[in-house]
Nucleic acid binder design. Structure first.
Lengths: 111, 111
DNA sequence: CAACAGGTACGTCCAATGTCGTACCTCAGT
DNA sequence: ACTGAGGTACGACATTGGACGTACCTGTTG
């Protein structure tokens, strides 16, 4: 089986509107905060985020994040990898990920 | 007639969710981008932003911005002043206003 | 005072959004 | 080959959000 990188956002340039709409949702924001706070930028399973929603809804939210250009997904067939597009985001919106990462410490004081 | 400062956000601390939801809307974002780009932080009339909506809708949007803690409004009876809460925002979300200001140059290349 | 402009309150309306059920797919493990 | 877990597609549904009509208020200006 060949893993395939899911096609990224149609727009090669990140759109602030799409990004902010993506971040406006609590669950998607939680995902982005975790990703932003992890400086190792390792690949995560999208199952590894403990989102309190059904898997259909999870698919929907990750699709939204991908469409906004915030993450890139790798399809392994029966599971999916998620990586933060840190370089692209930092280039277009410097400071945005720092803001989110700061929010992580805000919510997780003991880490 | 005494001008009265409209009571600010109920929550004394800015909430990232509320802020991002406020910024997710195109019109409110346009207002915030203008305010963030004007380093003089002068008071504006909320009529001075050329929002292509009715005045009822305008009231709604400025109320949303105020509730999110992003602006503070002064009531002059028959018109209303708007000021950016730059200090509070910078303290809680450093870099956010820079991001918005950068978007201003993006949209207004000739200024 | 009368007319007018800016603003608010309340209700209504429509489109967008988040949620899930059902059905189906893909791979890993037994 | 079967089963189970993760994932997607499509459709349905309820809620939310942005928009406006109508009515009303407050100052300014003539």
């Amino acid at each position: 089986m060949v893993e395939t990188v899911v096609p990224q956002a149609d727009t090669d340039v990140l759109d602030l509107g799409a990004v902010l709409r993506a971040l406006a949702d609590e669950h998607r924001r939680a995902v982005m905060i975790e990703l932003a706070a992890d400086r190792s930028d390792g690949e995560r399973t999208c199952h590894s985020f403990n989102l309190p929603v059904s898997k259909q809804t999870r698919t929907y939210h990750f699709r939204t994040l991908r469409d906004a250009g915030l993450i890139c997904e790798t399809n392994y067939g029966n599971k999916k990898g998620v990586r933060l597009r840190r370089a692209e985001i930092d280039r277009r919106f410097p400071g945005l990920l720092d803001l989110l990462a700061a929010e992580f410490s805000q919510v997780n004081p003991a880490s």
